[in-house]
Simulated scan of single mutants.
Amino acid sequence: MELTVYLAGQIHDDWRETAKKKAMEKELPIQFFEPMTNHDRSDHIGEEILGEQPNAIFKDEAASALNNLRTNVLMHKSDIVIALFGDQYKQWNAAMDVGAATALNKPLILVRPESLHHPAKEMANQAQVVVENLDQAMEAIAYIFQKK
């Protein structure tokens, strides 16, 4: 059995590469999906596909529609969603992704440090498992594959 995991949440650091490395170290049979982490590509995709927009608001709306399409398709194809809620960046993406995972009835592992218990409490309530770090998230997934 192979699982497909969508790596949701904050997009401005390399936590996804760390998660992939940890999964490889554990030899977990996982395929990963993730949002567009190239910020420029994400911001400009609407105009790249739909053409120049009349102002910044329309440009953002066009990019948002295409990014939401991408997220919805990839999350829909995933077996599990891992959403990272960290304290370094704005967390709108994490909150939105948790809502999408819940709407799609996807099992959710929320990664958030204990210090962020309060601001992430609603997201934590939606998750099947809440962990404090990526090691714990990978251990939770490894447990799925254990036979005894």
Rank of each mutant, 00 (worst) to 15 (best):
I45G: 04
G46R: 02
E47M: 01
E48H: 01
E48T: 04
E48N: 05
I49S: 08
L50A: 04
L50R: 00
L50N: 05
G51D: 07
E52T: 06
E52S: 08
P54V: 10
P54I: 10
P54S: 03
N55D: 15
N55C: 09
I57T: 09
F58Y: 06
K59I: 03
K59R: 11
D60N: 08
D60L: 05
E61I: 15
E61Q: 11
A62M: 02
A63P: 02
S64K: 14
A65Q: 12
A65F: 12
L66K: 09
L66H: 11
L66T: 10
L66N: 13
L69W: 08
L69N: 06
R70M: 14
R70S: 13
T71S: 15
T71A: 14
N72V: 05
N72M: 05
V73T: 12
V73A: 07
L74R: 09
M75C: 07
M75D: 05
H76R: 11
D79P: 01
D79K: 09
I80N: 03
I82F: 06
I82K: 14
A83D: 07
A83W: 11
L84K: 10
F85V: 06
G86Q: 03
G86K: 02
D87S: 15
Y89V: 09
Y89M: 08
Y89H: 11
Y89D: 10
K90D: 01
N93K: 11
N93S: 10
A94P: 06
M96A: 15
M96L: 12
M96P: 13
D97W: 13
D97F: 12
D97N: 14
V98P: 07
A100K: 15
A100V: 15
A100T: 15
A101W: 09
T102E: 14
T102Y: 06
N105G: 08
P107K: 08
L108H: 07
L110P: 05
L110G: 00
L110N: 05
V111N: 05
R112W: 00
R112Q: 04
R112L: 01
P113N: 11
E114V: 15
E114N: 11
S115F: 08
S115H: 01
L116R: 04
H117M: 07
H117Q: 13
H118E: 15
P119M: 05
P119K: 06
A120H: 07
A120V: 11
K121R: 10
K121S: 15
K121Q: 12
E122N: 12
E122D: 10
E122C: 13
E122H: 13
M123T: 09
M123H: 02
A124H: 07
N125P: 07
N125V: 06
Q126M: 10
Q126D: 06
A127T: 01
Q128M: 03
Q128A: 01
V129K: 11
V131H: 03
V131T: 02
V131L: 02
V131E: 02
E132D: 04
N133W: 14
